[in-house]
Design a protein around this nucleic acid. Structure first.
Length: 377
RNA sequence: GGGGGUGUGGCAGAGUGGUCUAAUGCACCAGACUGUAAAUCUGGCGGGCUUGCCCUUCGGUGGUUCAAAUCCAUCCGCCCCCA
């Protein structure tokens, strides 16, 4: 089976949701799937063995960050990123395209690529579609992404159009570079659809990207500050234009509610820093909504974070204790809360897949939302 | 016994006649975070309401002054040095 290929197992009769599988040399991924983000080759605060225990199937890493440190040579020598961090399972790397957005102040964009001033030491580093491909090949992720510009939000139509078209031209260059050798036997290249919140731009991007025939397709340029409705509309515009036999990946999403909305609209893959970042900031996701464990109401709450969760934090510790760890700035909470949130997202996706098997997706979604928002209302 | 210093909001600590409900930090109370420059950032933190004002605060009391955390007197507490 070609790396990164998608097999559709079942389509929901209720909505666009799909149950499927993505094949890679390092394992099969059941979709819909949530992919934890490990920018620097590590999911922040979570030891690999715990990450495995969560049931996570694939994790991300970032080209820009790993290229700067430790450098691709070391990762190559280590035998690839999966061996380097001892994950030994499927990984996906982002191309550096998101850094064009997030490191806006320390980069210069041109037709050729993007020059970054290293956030570590200020040195200049030029990223092009070609160099991004080489970096990602060296890092050795199973799925790699086209180098694109993650269009900021809000963006004027003119800017969004030029940005989207630039990403299209870059995608062509990525493809050429990627297929120069036989890397595609062990790696897959996904294209990224841009176009901000403009329907015609999204359609044009989707059409031209699919013409280029990538192994999978991502929707990028979302979750950059736009309202929830805009994000959902983007999926609705793009999804019908994507081939059924390829994976669809919604980049940078998201919150638990976003995962339901995304799956319902036909998305197979998600990634997000939310579980780890929010965990480090004390925010915890539970079946009864999100809460901030730092808050006073948990000082003497000796129950677990989520009675439905079987993660180490929930199995071993009370809210009161976790509250104490956060207040005392004890580093253990970083790990425990990040891990809990990853368990939550991974379990949520597993629940979603099960509901698709049973043809009860919409019922499961309603049940989830009723419970999840009860606390907040 | 002699000499010197000091007392400020939960804590530490600025301020030494009006611009002081009083800097700053911590603590405390909340909120945000979406392909990670984030264990970060933002707001609040005396009381009242008509949200602009009013009332009450800088150890106690009493003064000086148009005006006092700030000056004076006195009392109380604490600290240091010498005996």
């Amino acid at each position: 089976m070609k790396c990164g290929s998608y097999r559709l197992i079942k389509k929901s009769f209720q909505c666009k949701a799909r149950l499927g599988r993505v094949y890679t040399a390092r394992g099969v991924i059941d979709t819909p799937v949530f992919m934890p983000v490990g920018t620097q080759g590590t999911v922040k605060g979570v030891a690999t063995e715990y990450l495995k225990s969560s049931g996570a199937q694939i994790i991300l890493a970032n080209s820009y960050h790993l290229y700067l440190r430790p450098g691709t040579e070391i990762i190559k020598k280590a035998g690839g990123i999966q061996k380097f961090n001892s994950w030994n399972k499927p990984m996906l790397t982002d191309s550096g395209g998101f850094q064009i957005f997030s490191l806006n102040d320390i980069r210069k964009l041109s037709e050729e690529g993007a020059e970054f001033r290293s956030h570590i030491d200020g040195s200049a580093h030029f990223f092009s579609p070609e160099s991004s491909m080489r970096i990602q090949k060296d890092i050795g992720a199973d799925i790699i992404m086209c180098f694109d510009e993650c269009t900021p939000y809000p963006a004027e139509y003119k800017y969004a159009k030029e940005s989207m078209e630039l990403s299209l031209r870059w995608a062509k260059r990525c493809k050429t570079e990627f297929y120069k050798d036989n890397a595609f036997e062990t790696q897959a290249l996904f294209g990224i659809i841009q176009g901000s919140v403009y329907d015609d731009l999204r359609k044009q991007s989707a059409l031209e990207m699919t013409d280029m025939d990538f192994t999978g397709y991502a929707i990028g340029g979302v979750s950059v500050g736009e309202p929830k409705e805009e994000k959902e509309k983007v999926i609705e515009i793009v999804e019908p234009l994507l081939p059924e036999n390829k994976a669809r990946y919604l980049m940078g999403v998201g919150m638990p509610e976003d995962l339901w909305e995304g799956v319902e609209r036909g998305i197979d893959m998600f990634d997000c820093v939310i579980p780890t970042r929010n965990g480090r900031n004390g925010q915890v996701f539970t079946s009864r909504g999100k809460l901030n464990i730092r808050n006073a109401e948990f000082r003497e709450d000796f129950s677990p974070l989520d009675p439905e969760c079987n993660c180490p934090a929930c199995k071993g510790y009370s809210k009161a204790y976790l509250n104490h760890l956060v207040r005392a700035q004890e580093s253990l909470y970083l790990s425990l809360l990040s891990l809990h949130n990853i368990y939550f997202m991974v379990n949520l996706m597993s629940k979603i897949r099960k509901s698709l098997e049973n043809d009860t997706f919409l019922e499961a979604k309603k049940e989830f939302f009723d419970k999840y928002y009860k606390r907040q209302s």
